[in-house]
Design a protein around this nucleic acid. Structure first.
Length: 471
RNA sequence: GGCGCCAUAGCCAAGUGGUAAGGCAAAGGUCUGCAACACCUCUAUCACCAGUUCAAAUCUGGUUGGCGCCUCCA
């Protein structure tokens, strides 16, 4: 299994610290509002990475935090006249609902920054003791960037470029920093803000220290994979490395994975620009499986453009796969032979090559776009080789294979067994009679009635099939 | 100003040295009372220029056009 590592800018064969086990940390959202579809990309991408690793037999300890102390949360709490906690807890719950809708599995642990303050203070103490941090006059604690020699190794920047190249940094350096690139580990409270007591001042932690500490607490000082959006490479992840490695004296994470951005009409989507859709917005128009499928059709390191047309295309594509699964199920239910015949054994063996194709693509830095094309090849193969004469065993093996691969992608194509509404059943029977009587007007009328209820009928050689509309 | 990424058919998107996967859409056809599903057929020399090579979408240099990070941000 190969992973593209931002640290080395190459694909590397994954070797875990502990055989058979993966320690993985994903930077989660700041919970001050409903998550948007940009937030959804890393959730979907890395959930798929996790699912694939588990499929390959690895045990994944998966941690995704919630950043629940932040300027915007505080701003929202002041606007509503409630505690910051009320805001963050509310949106953590909403985020979990959205994750469930996208079939993103809950992490092994979902730590929250405000519950880990003690660990943060410990790490800051250590950094001060080791000379990597200092306390300013007002109690702010800064990380001494120049004390960490490898600073810049993740984002491949060097300190001189950063210093000379950036105007705003130089201006803001007028504070009490020793160096404009030093960043905050602990900052003093302002009126009305949540705060914690500390040896330096009443205040709250800087953003970067949170992830360093939560990662260490739940996964240990050294982890296998640290992941997040590409915008976090600098400064967030760069700073995490500096803090963690300076404090712990060893490498922080082996592999750094970053997903590219989701754009709207070729423009960056951001909360500050206001051109964003929440996952909740999308869920009103589409089944969230469509959103998930849409995102997995591109490679996670390529920018992806979002639009209504593209969602429609993704929906139609997904339907093709679902149709095949439905069709196989229908044929199996009506098949008269149960055991497979020799020829079918050979066909099933051939079908396995699609699973191999799928795995080969996923092994190559989780190339979901390629992996999904293998699923389509399998779908084509199934459509071509399954018919009324096929055995039950053959049909269900094919169906299981498609379902299994889609399941790795985190998309459930197996419809739950639903009780056939007796009303629907009798309408279908009535329509069949009408067709027999060549009363096509009535037959079409019944079909329209069912269509309005979201039921699509399909007349096939083997009988009438029905399915619920996907949207 | 500094660092970096991308450019493949109408649209989306793999492929990163050996003569272009897959999906959507469109067109024609088979099946069918019609429709839908499915199947068959059909759509590209890979932004442009120059070079390296027996061989380049794939490597090198340049041009043009997009975009990202350097500030809260997935």
């Amino acid at each position: 299994m190969k992973i593209y590592n931002t640290l080395t800018k190459t694909k590397e064969e994954m070797q875990t610290i502990e055989p058979g086990k993966v320690r993985m940390y994903v930077c989660g959202p700041t919970v001050y509002n409903l998550i948007h579809i940009g937030n959804a990309r890393p959730m979907i991408v890395f959930d798929t990475v996790r699912r694939y690793m588990e499929y390959k037999g690895l045990e994944v300890n998966y941690v995704m935090n919630f950043t629940d102390v932040d300027d915007k949360i505080i701003k929202a709490s002041i606007a509503e006249g409630v505690d910051a906690e009320v805001i963050s807890n509310r949106y953590i719950e909403e985020c979990k609902k959205d994750m469930e809708g996208m079939n993103v599995r809950p992490a092994t642990t979902h730590p929250q920054a405000t519950l880990e303050i003690e660990g943060m203070q410990d790490m800051i103490h250590t950094l001060i003791k080791k000379g990597h941090a200092y306390v300013a006059m007002d109690g702010t604690v800064y990380f001494r960037t120049r004390s960490f020699e490898e600073y810049g190794k993740l984002s491949h920047k060097n300190l001189d470029d950063l210093r000379s190249g950036n105007r705003s940094l130089q201006v803001s350096g007028a504070e009490q920093k020793e160096d404009p690139l030093d960043f905050v580990l602990w900052k003093p409270k302002k009126d009305g803000e949540p705060f914690w007591e500390s040896d330096w001042c009443d205040g709250r932690p800087g953003w970067h220290i949170e992830c360093s500490v939560m990662s260490k607490r739940y996964l240990g000082e050294k982890i296998d994979i640290h992941a997040g959006g590409e915008d976090l490479v600098f400064p967030h992840h760069e700073n995490e490395i500096a803090q963690s490695e300076a404090a712990n004296g060893q490498e922080f994470a082996r592999y750094w994975m970053h997903n590219a951005f989701l754009n709207i009409d070729n423009k960056k989507m951001s909360k500050s620009l206001g051109n964003f859709f929440t996952v909740r917005d999308i869920s009103e128009k589409y089944d969230l499986r469509v959103l998930r499928f849409f995102m997995l059709q591109a490679h996670y390191r390529s920018p992806l453009n979002f639009s209504a047309d593209l969602m429609e295309a993704a929906k139609n594509s997904l339907e093709r796969i679902e149709n095949a699964v439905e069709n196989l199920k229908f044929l199996a239910e009506n098949s008269t032979t149960s055991e497979r015949i020799e020829k079918e054994t050979a066909l099933l063996q051939e079908a396995m090559t699609f699973t191999e194709q799928f795995e080969k693509a996923m092994d190559d830095d989780f190339n979901t776009a390629d992996a999904i094309s293998a699923i389509f090849d399998l779908v084509k193969f199934a459509n071509l080789n399954a018919n009324g004469e096929s055995s039950k065993e053959f049909l269900s093996e094919l169906r299981d294979q498609i379902i299994r691969l889609m399941d790795i992608c985190g998309i459930v194509v197996e419809k739950k067994e639903e009780m056939l509404d007796s009303q629907i059943e009798s309408l279908i029977a009535e329509r069949q009679q009408a067709r027999k009587d060549r009363n096509f007007a009535r037959a079409d009328e019944i079909r329209d009635i069912l269509l309005e209820k979201g039921i699509i009928l399909e007349d096939t050689r083997e009988g009438v099939k029905w399915k619920r509309i996907v949207d």
